[in-house]
Design a protein around this nucleic acid. Structure first.
Length: 499
RNA sequence: GGCCCGUUGGAGAAGCGGUUCAACUCACUAGCCUUUCACGCUAGCAUUCACGGGUUCAAAUCCCGUACAGGUCACCA
């Protein structure tokens, strides 16, 4: 090994540590700071988190920032904040140093020279070599092969065995001949790749920074990662990482490749997919609840063994079973998300629901002149039908601003005998009511029923229709109260005229 | 093109050789319920698991092939 003395000590210490923790479950989520927290990343993080917590292991967040050009300011900060917002915490990371740090690859590269050391070691053993080809040369090589119709677009190895030159170079891994890489994937079962299918790939870029596959394999080992749970798009990376592990005679972690999340067209969820909201931050801003999202994401490629699908984070941790991950793609079902989030909103207290919704109303200048009790009434009436917080604005507008039209079955229903008398009786009561209140309205409904001899469905349905033009909806007295006296009377009159 | 993975109702999704195995959820449809919640309750909704062949006493479940779909083949991660 070509390690400096100080670093040698570092590695020795790590080795001892790894022995001690070998039996522990240690998983990692390894985001790159190239963007904000995406639904796909969140799923990867979440499954690793659930797996770690279920098995009482460690959950590590390692930053893979080796693509210096694409790194985005605030990328990591945003991702970690939203991981927390979703309800995940971790045991080791850049903000929570553990024994296996540093947890940022660029830092490992710059301060400890980790990857270069190992790359040099491979070069010395003849398992890797320097490549002096220019990007243009490489591109030309590929174009040529394509033109000849070759299916194997792998690097020609023309730099293999070249003497050292005083020129920029990258380091390529010399892929072994006729070697089979088989691993028992938790999700997919036994998967096999042949080394012929992998070209000599770059482990160190021209700028000296390692490529993903190299850094990842090394760090997974150095950090004693026991299980690697990641998206299926990584499955073809696995043989590359296995050959690095083998080159150093390191133990393989257990791999599990989770199904891709696809859109309605069964295409991999892409950040450019305009149809689906992609970033957790956006869901937050629309008034989705973290636990609901946590629940929904956990169902992307995994299903519980019991019937119930609405599960709290604690229940999910308890029930998580990695063998129940699906091997076919998980479709992002927007309707299901809406349903799940609605279930969580319904479970909120009125105060919590108000906190969630009020900002959206204020943003739209709705209810500025109203007092707090008006907001409480509004939320109470609509809470059960909200798919997400911001929807309160639409619900408000539908209720207060949509034209009131009676037609179809609704009109049919109120044309029945006795409806007119009922509505008129009720209207008179409302006219004498000052101010309006839910409980007085409720009493008035009873009273009007008694007076006109209408009861049950024949009592409530006409009134419901007369105020909302619908046969379904929220609690009747509360809805009337929210509507206000003037509008309520107007609608009753309008309905009576149309009988 | 090579390699890898997948294909169960309108949608999500379970089941992975045989005891109600075609669960469950969403959506939809129908009926019903309220003088304390009509986004509530109940019921209905794939005689069939892409297609073709094979193995087996027995296959959605195992094997082979076809079709279709996707992923991946970067000095990105």
């Amino acid at each position: 090994m070509l390690l400096a003395r100080g670093r040698q000590t570092y590695y020795n210490e790590l080795k001892t540590l790894r022995r001690q923790t070998m039996k522990n479950v240690r998983v990692r989520y390894a985001p790159s700071p190239t963007g904000y927290l995406h639904i796909g990343n969140a799923r990867t993080a979440l499954f690793n988190y659930l797996f770690a917590r279920h098995h009482e292991g460690s959950f590590i967040v390692r930053i893979e920032d080796t693509d210096v050009k694409r790194n985005v300011d605030q990328g990591i900060e945003n991702q970690m904040n939203y991981l927390k917002w979703l309800g995940m915490d971790w045991d080791e990371s850049i903000d929570k140093p553990g024994a296996y740090g540093p947890y940022r690859q660029l830092e490992r590269h710059e301060k400890l020279n980790v990857y270069k050391d190992y790359a040099n070691d491979l070069i010395e053993k003849g398992l890797a070599y320097k490549c002096y080809c220019s990007p243009e040369e490489l591109e030309a090589e590929i174009e040529e092969k394509k033109a000849r119709g070759e299916s194997n677009l792998h690097y020609s190895r023309k730099c293999l065995g070249k003497p050292d030159q005083d020129a920029p170079y990258m380091v390529r891994f010399k892929v072994p001949d006729e070697t089979t890489y088989t691993f028992d994937d938790i999700v997919k079962g036994e998967v096999t790749f042949r080394s012929e299918d992998v070209g000599d790939w770059v482990i160190l870029k021209r700028n000296g920074i390692p490529t993903y596959n190299f850094a990842c394999a090394i760090d997974d080992h150095l950090m004693a990662i026991s299980h690697v749970l990641r998206g299926e798009d990584h499955i073809t990376n696995t043989p590359k990482q296995l050959m690095v592990l083998d080159a150093f005679d390191w133990k393989h972690p257990t791999y599990g490749h989770m199904p891709l999340i696809v859109n309605d067209n069964h295409k991999k969820l892409s950040k450019r997919d305009a149809d689906i909201i992609q970033f957790i931050e956006q869901y937050h801003k629309l008034g989705y609840l973290p636990d609901a999202l946590f629940n929904f994401i956990a169902l992307l490629g995994w299903s519980p063994d019991k019937k119930e699908e609405i599960l709290s984070p604690e229940e999910l941790i308890k029930r998580f079973d990695e063998t129940r991950m699906s091997s076919s793609p998980a479709t992002f079902d927007k309707e299901k998300l809406a349903f799940i989030n609605n279930r969580y909103i319904k479970a909120l207290s009125n105060e919590e629901a108000l906190d969630l919704c009020k900002p959206f109303l204020i943003d739209e200048n709705i209810g500025l002149e109203q007092d707090e009790s008006w907001f409480v009434d509004l939320i109470e009436v609509f809470k059960d039908r909200l798919s997400f917080g911001a929807q309160i604005v639409d619900l408000y507008r539908d209720f207060f601003e949509k034209p009131f039209i009676l037609e179809g079955d609704v009109l049919e229903f109120i044309k029945q005998d006795g409806v007119k008398a009922l509505l008129e009786t009720f209207k008179n009561m409302v006219e004498n009511m000052d101010p309006l209140a839910s409980d007085t309205l409720k009493k008035a409904i009873k009273e009007a029923g008694k007076e006109t001899g209408m009861k049950g469905k024949m009592l409530f349905m006409p009134l419901r229709i007369a105020v909302s033009a619908s046969m379904h909806g929220p609690d009747l007295p509360k809805m009337m109260n929210l509507m206000g006296k003037e509008r309520l009377i107007k609608r009753l009159e309008y309905t009576i005229r149309h009988l």
